[in-house]
């Protein structure tokens, strides 16, 4: 089984997980094996089959537009790994995509 088709570093970048070289090697191999197994799905004829996103078919579940309670500001801020006054603080943002 091969793992040569997975660019594990690229995937880790998308997933925002820093990997050690050892992890790159190990996960790369394991994911390769798993995908190899996943490829058995291609044996399955699904030409006439639609995709199932949810097993129980339900529709139009929505709520009325009414205001409810918020969390207490202090409860919220106590969770913050780093805060500055009433704000959450994070290190500088380099990428400008939003």
């Amino acid at each position: 089984m091969s793992s040569d088709n997975i660019d594990i570093r690229y995937v880790a970048k998308l997933a925002r997980i820093e990997l050690t070289d050892d992890e790159v090697e190990r996960f790369g191999r394991q994911l390769g094996d798993l995908l190899e197994h996943a490829k058995t799905l291609h044996e399955l004829d699904t030409a006439a089959v639609s995709a199932t996103a949810q097993v129980v078919e339900s529709r139009n579940v929505a709520r009325a537009d009414a205001v409810g309670r918020c969390l207490e500001h202090e409860t919220v801020m106590q969770m913050a790994p780093q805060r500055q006054g009433a704000f959450f603080r994070v290190p500088r943002i380099i990428s400008e995509d939003s």
Binding site: D65, A66, G68, C70, L71, H73
Partner: peptide, 23 residues
């Protein structure tokens, strides 16, 4: 709208930061 898209927090401009939030 009166409330946010997926929760019942008020849809209101401004206010004290991080005071119109819920889980």
């Amino acid at each position: 709208t009166k409330s946010k898209m997926f929760c019942a927090c008020p849809n209101r401009f401004g206010g004290e930061p991080n005071a119109q939030v819920c889980p």
